[in-house]
Design a protein around this nucleic acid. Structure first.
Lengths: 342, 342
DNA sequence: ATGAAAGCGCTAACAA
DNA sequence: TTGTTAGCGCTTTCAT
């Protein structure tokens, strides 16, 4: 099934076969008879170009890499999908890797992808370190970071407008009359966490509500962290009437913790969250969320990457923001006067 | 950054550099000095083997393909993840493709992956045709179909025990006292749909409940289909007290339709579903489902594929079943006597 | 203990 | 209009 075989059958040289099959018959003024012979021979043995050989020869793999912390998380899956669809449309294939939220794995995977000659990379970093990514970029690899960016450094990043979302959610809670608010944070030190937290805090402060360290708990964007943090906060500060969960997973954990402590949402406790959950509207209760436009994140990342692959220079602004939509549902109500029991 | 460069720097031949870097220094009794020189040279310029060149030479790409109808669907995402993790553990990389539930796209993508010399393929088919897959398998490509199998043919398939789940769900509905039951089916002609439907029908029949064509609606495993089908059924047969949705998406559509028709689940209408939904327990109402073990589906598919890649012969039984767990939640209750209004 | 050379499948510059 | 040849980066026989 090689070009050589086709050439043999057609009784021409490999070069001629190559030219014909590349559609360059006209440009090279190859005789119709030859073209026909080659075409038929190729047809007959079901010839297909070896992408491998072509890549080696041309130096172009038409491959891009996508690295996410957890493919099965609908949030990352949606991003991966947009990139995949865009790639297919542009004639690229996608190498997918799952870092399992592990920095070391991510490093390994990125290296592995580079060894495979990817022409571009989209990554949602699992950790706080970016040197391996900076190295890749410095080595000339077009790179786009998505969702989890870094506050410093020089990596082109597509992420939501976390501050906007957090502020809006703060308004919702304040408007409802909450003054004792707890925050279930994700991983401190990450841009996503810190931006959301800072903006939320600032918004509360401008309304005279102070958010002390004692009102903040949690250490990861996970359900377990959310659950533990919620339990801690609700036990230590029973006067808390509303929780702000920095992610959907955290919110789920909060719902669990609330149920375990016998606090009914939203009757005894309001809950607002940054979301990536599909079907949040069908949840019990339907969650008030700052809804990220996940497909847009993926699409924008893909667009930026393919623009760079097409030679378009990097945009000036390093952090590309996708705006967030706050959807008010039933999980936030006015604080009840009922004294919570633990 | 090529072997040639390393050889130059180390002052040895390419062959020697290759041997050293392949860790075959010992086997070839290469002098320590040479080994050191090569190693240092490689280190110095950050040498990495070109996977491309290696693949071309060896004929082994260490690449597998995964094709699913929709990467962003948590069900397929979970399957893709398990395969990805297994692949990484075995030293393979994964080429991911999204067929967008489109048969023609799938064909194209499969071909594309084959052109890239994948060594194995896992696919969840989008359509009813399997000739392109059979062709790939006949061409010697190790292939595993996951979830959506075919009733006939010879493709090794990992799928849930649909009959078992459907029977169990039928029991639940019958036990609750339902006699007027509607089925919201997925795509007729697919193994998944037909097995679930047949088993459900049979289970009802053995209890004396007849399921006529007038009690069955729907044409796709999608929310829109579920919504339309539910609306149709509930309008045409208001006496229906329970619906069986053949998938989570369909169930979501059913919930919408029920809400639109003013029927409260489960008070006015019970709902049972085949599920792949995460967080079904937090839904309103929490859904009674036949819960598929999605990670197990992916894991089993990966295991079978890598076993074949390791030379283990294909198992005798073509259809590998993963058992399903019925979880009874609040969406099924005894039928109300209240006359439904449209 | 090391090197020369062939070849994996393909493309393209150069010849004819 | 077609063929010869070199070479992409690597591994591996076969020499030495």
């Amino acid at each position: 099934m090689t070009l050589k075989r086709v050439a043999e059958i057609a009784g021409v040289s490999i070069a001629t076969a190559s030219r014909v099959l590349a559609g360059k018959g006209g440009a090279h003024r190859i005789s119709e008879a030859t073209v026909a012979a080659v075409t038929q021979a190729a047809e007959k043995i079901g010839f297909r170009h070896s992408h491998l050989a072509r890549s080696l020869k041309s130096g172009q793999s038409a491959l891009i890499g996508v690295v996410v912390p957890d493919v099965s998380n609908p949030f990352f899956a949606a991003i991966a999908r947009e990139i995949t669809l865009a790639a297919e449309a542009k004639g690229y294939s996608v190498l997918l890797a799952d870092s399992r939220e592990d920095d070391a794995s991510e490093r390994r995977l990125v290296q592995q992808l580079r060894d495979r000659h990817i022409e571009g990379l989209v990554v949602c970093p699992a950790g706080l370190k970016q040197d391996h990514l900076a190295a890749a970029q410095d080595a000339g690899l077009p790179l786009v970071v998505v969702d989890r960016g870094f506050a410093d450094g020089d990596l082109l990043t597509v992420t939501s407008d976390h501050a906007q979302g957090a502020r809006a959610l703060a308004q919702v809670l304040l408007k409802a009359g909450h003054r004792h608010i707890g925050v279930l944070q994700g991983r401190p030190g990450t841009l996503v966490n810190d931006e959301r937290l800072a903006a939320f805090k600032a918004a509360l402060a401008s309304d005279g509500v102070r958010l002390t360290a004692a009102h903040i708990a949690g250490d990861a964007f996970s359900e377990v962290s959310g659950r533990r943090a919620a339990a801690t906060l609700l036990r230590a500060k029973p006067q808390i009437t509303a929780l702000f969960a920095l992610s959907n997973q955290i919110a789920l954990g909060a719902l669990r913790a609330a149920a375990e402590l016998g606090r009914v949402v939203p009757r005894d406790l309001s809950l607002a969250t940054f979301d990536d959950l599909p079907h949040a509207e069908f949840m019990n209760p339907p969650l008030t969320t700052a809804c990220q436009d996940v497909p847009a994140l993926g699409r924008q990342a893909a667009d930026l990457l393919f623009a760079r692959l097409a030679g378009v220079p990097r945009p000036r602004t390093r952090l590309q923001r996708i705006s967030v939509t706050v959807i008010e549902r039933a999980s936030v109500t006015a604080p009840s006067t009922r004294k919570a029991t633990t």
